[in-house]
């Protein structure tokens, strides 16, 4: 069944989009990630213009993170204060990102920049995860006890000024890295259409030493607002948010997420992470290939923006 996307201005198949949403939702439920980093490249592979894929991806991320944050709110595993400071940084980063986005679009370099960012980020994150999970798998096979991270160890981050106390996270830390992290995630959100959970979660755990149980809820909480802000600004400045496209992806996504969560419980942590790492690397490689393969047509037309 074909449907015309009013903003992307192309006809697409409803079932392909629902399936795409469901597949990404399944994976995001299984691995506990938002899935924005998969949705945007998939949309680009499906010939949706990158500018629209990014803005719509940000819109879709709201749905999955909202639904996730609600469960964490109920369980009380959400640090509002930490989330709020992250969000303040996020708004600044997102605003800067939107400005860069519009500038790159005018220069005709937006598509390239989006692809390069995805290749670099997904390649790094995927590679690190793969190495880490393969090591963990090997260690568990050889029967060695996993090396526990020493808690209470302080790094350079804890020597920065402007400290603030975050009660729910049992944390007393400078707000500079918190704001900086929020800003970086906001910037990526507006340029890549991702929630940024796949960077936020490890950064909160390893850099800020936030207890693991509040990390996901807090990260989801800040992602809702950063991506809501990103969506709003993209809608007003670039008119690149396609609600029909976003809705189809969300509808598939929320359904898929539930089954993914169930499937995820049956797999072991290291296996799960190795699988996710392979998936992330595959997307990065596919995007990289497109950068190097001779395009069918070297010339492209664009309106003046």
């Amino acid at each position: 069944m074909g449907i015309y996307l009013p903003i992307a201005e192309i006809s697409v198949n409803v079932f392909v989009l629902l399936a795409m949403g469901a597949a990404v939702g399944f994976l995001s439920g299984m691995f506990g990630v938002g899935g924005g980093f998969l949705i945007t490249p998939l949309l680009i592979f499906y010939n949706i213009p990158p500018a629209i894929a990014v803005a719509t991806g940000a819109n879709q991320v709201i749905a999955s993170s909202f639904s996730g944050a609600l469960s964490h709110f109920k369980r009380g595993t959400l640090d509002f204060k930490l989330g709020g400071v992250l969000l303040a940084g996020g708004i600044v980063g997102s605003t800067a990102g939107i400005y860069v986005f519009a500038l790159l679009r005018r220069l005709g370099q937006l598509d390239l920049f989006i692809s390069l960012l995805y290749v670099a980020l997904l390649g790094t994150v995927g590679g690190l995860m793969l190495v880490e999970s393969v090591n963990a798998l090997r260690a568990s096979r050889s029967g060695a006890a996993p090396v526990l991270k020493k808690s209470g160890q302080h790094n350079w981050i804890h020597r920065l000024p402007f400290k603030m106390r975050f009660r729910a996270s049992k944390l007393f830390v400078s707000i500079i890295p918190v704001l900086g992290l929020g800003a970086a995630i906001g910037f990526l959100s507006s340029i890549m259409g991702v929630g940024g959970g796949f960077i936020m979660v490890p950064a909160l755990i390893y850099l800020l030493k936030v207890p693991t149980n509040v990390v996901i809820g807090t990260s989801l909480f800040q992602i809702i607002f950063t991506s809501a802000y990103t969506t709003l600004v993209h809608a007003t400045t670039n008119q690149t948010v396609d609600v029909i496209l976003a809705f189809l992806l969300m509808a598939g996504g929320v359904a898929g997420a539930q089954y993914g969560a169930k499937a995820g419980q049956r797999l072991r942590g290291e296996q799960l992470r190795a699988l996710l790492a392979l998936l992330v690397l595959a997307v990065a490689i596919r995007l990289a290939i497109d950068l190097f393969v001779t395009p069918p047509n070297r010339y492209s037309l664009a309106g003046l923006t």
Partner: peptide, 12 residues
């Protein structure tokens, strides 16, 4: 667009 996303997430 934002409200629709939140509604969908909540309904889901």
């Amino acid at each position: 667009a934002v409200s629709l996303a939140m509604l969908t997430g909540w309904l889901g």
